[in-house]
């Protein structure tokens, strides 16, 4: 009986691909629909696609915010799920979970880049870390997003460069986040999920 991952199901987007990736990696998981279900799990994934402000509102309605903020178990936010860990998003000018003192910003039009940032981007580690264990520096991961979390020398675990250097992955205590989609990033992405499941 392995440690079990709880997927925080607050109604933000499709999670079929995520659960499929966990199944391919034989990572045991279950769904969390209410705060009462948190204690059954050893770690949590916060998925999310779409609008950060709308996602935060759904999270509030699900009554799971306090459970998330107070946990000392490992948490992985994916894409918008990672952005939720920050203070604020320019998307809908939304106040978020404030786990890490960072801001989620829109790619500036003056950068002369295409938005959404779509495709496989090189990711470089900022620190040796357990989430990127056995993943070569400079590995490509699949991104699709219009908002990004600014680079921060303390909390950025790995960065990517797309007109601006931003956080591809971050860590604050037991909280981790990845801006890319590990469930769509080939073997390297699956390895991230595996590494998280073994924390």
């Amino acid at each position: 009986e392995g440690k079990k991952t709880g997927i925080i199901s607050y109604g933000a987007g499709n999670i079929f691909s995520l659960t499929a990736a966990l199944e391919r990696q034989n990572i045991p998981f279950g769904m969390i629909y209410s705060p009462e279900e948190f204690d059954q799990y050893d770690r949590y994934i916060i998925p999310g696609v779409g609008h950060a402000g709308a996602a935060m509102q759904k999270l509030e309605e699900s009554r799971m915010i306090e459970k998330i903020k107070s946990t000392s178990k490992p948490v992985l936010g994916i894409c918008v799920g990672m952005q939720l860990l920050t203070d604020f998003s320019e998307e809908g000018n939304a106040h978020l979970l404030s786990i890490a003192p960072l801001r989620t910003r829109h790619f500036d039009e003056t950068l002369q880049i295409k938005v959404p940032h779509t495709g496989w981007n090189k990711v470089c580690s900022q620190f040796e870390n357990e989430l990127f264990n056995d993943i070569k520096d400079g590995t490509y991961f699949y991104f699709v997003h219009s908002y990004f979390i600014e680079f921060n020398p303390t909390f950025t675990l790995a960065f990517a460069d797309y007109g601006v250097k931003f956080s591809a992955a971050l860590k604050k205590n037991n909280f981790y986040g990845v801006q890319f989609h590990p469930e769509k990033s080939g073997e390297a992405g699956e390895k991230i999920l595996k590494n998280f499941s073994e924390l």
Binding site: F16, S17, R24, Y142, K184, G186
Partner: peptide, 10 residues
């Protein structure tokens, strides 16, 4: 569904 179950790229 079948593709999403087995394929790890978008």
């Amino acid at each position: 569904k079948a593709v999403a179950r087995q394929v790890n790229i978008p």
